[in-house]
Amino acid sequence: MWHAGERAVQRRTGQQERAEHTGRSIGRTIPPVAARFLTERRTIVVGAADPAGRIWATQLAGPPGFVRADGDHAVLVAARPAPGDPLAEVLAGPAEVGTIALDAAGRRRMRLNGRSEPDGPDGLRITAEQVYANCPKYIQRRSPRELPAAEPTATAGDRLTLPRQLAVAAADTFFLATAGPDGRVDASHRGGFPGFVEVLGPNRLRWAEYAGNSMFMSLGNLELDPAAGLLLPDWDTGDALLLTGRAEVDWSDPSAPVVDYTVLRTVDLTHAVPLTWTAPEFSPALPHPISRPVR
């Protein structure tokens, strides 16, 4: 079930037994409750590698039902990335993808990883290889509000501008895409109080990893491959910031790993989704900012 990187991290943290238990929840089929959950979603995060091996995460959106199960083993997504999105050309052909569907209002999330293929000119069909739900930890409760549809635009760069540094420092949520040794991609969620992502410069970020489900799929991937993509949604505008770079995990304290992230490329997506969101109700599971170790 687990690859070498995941097992190494599970041993380092003393979580092998718990990982074996929680790992039983990973399946290859989409249960009816998961199918209903997907049908209700307005957005889905998709991670994949570009031809240069850089990992990106992006966000697709549509009305309820734009994501739906196609039988027990596949999902249809009636959306594709906009021109200029680093995954637009990637998802125009077959690709390994990691996805996560988040219900921020209900504090629920579901991950589905597998093989994506184009479905018509504007859609995707993803054959499931891993399907599992996550606990509600660290999800900020917020509800969507409609925006008039607008054409997305993309602006690429190689560092965080000062306004983007300030936006990252104020973020309470991001999504992380990584890849395993077999090329399979995983997409996951991170949440915290504003400031939980530290901005150390135009190309350097740092964040603490909070206790999770003990499977360590993201950190296990990073154990073997430092490539990682970040998606930071702008809940107030519907814009998004996409980053690709390299992540190094500091294991000085195995119970509280810290990730140092080097930004290699950036893409600003305006009008990434036709939604804004209400002000957050912070997760009660979040560590208080003053309790975080200073590093």
Rank of each mutant, 00 (worst) to 15 (best):
R36G: 14
W207H: 06
G123A: 03
P81V: 00
E209I: 05
R68M: 03
H73D: 15
N213K: 12
R36A: 15
Q165S: 03
Y132E: 08
P233G: 06
E248G: 11
P144C: 03
A4C: 05
V75N: 10
L231D: 05
T127L: 07
R54F: 12
T173F: 07
G106W: 04
A49V: 02
T276E: 12
G192V: 00
V168N: 06
S283F: 08
E96H: 15
L76A: 09
R204D: 07
A167K: 09
T22E: 13
E17V: 13
D72A: 14
W56G: 04
G201S: 02
A154H: 10
D239L: 00
G62F: 08
A170W: 05
P63D: 12
S252I: 06
A170L: 03
L91I: 09
R141T: 13
R145T: 11
T155N: 00
A61F: 08
P287M: 06
S218R: 01
L269Y: 02
F216I: 07
L102M: 14
S188V: 03
W251K: 03
T43Y: 10
M215N: 15
E223V: 00
P83N: 12
P64H: 07
V197Y: 01
R18V: 11
V9D: 10
T173C: 11
R141C: 12
Q140M: 11
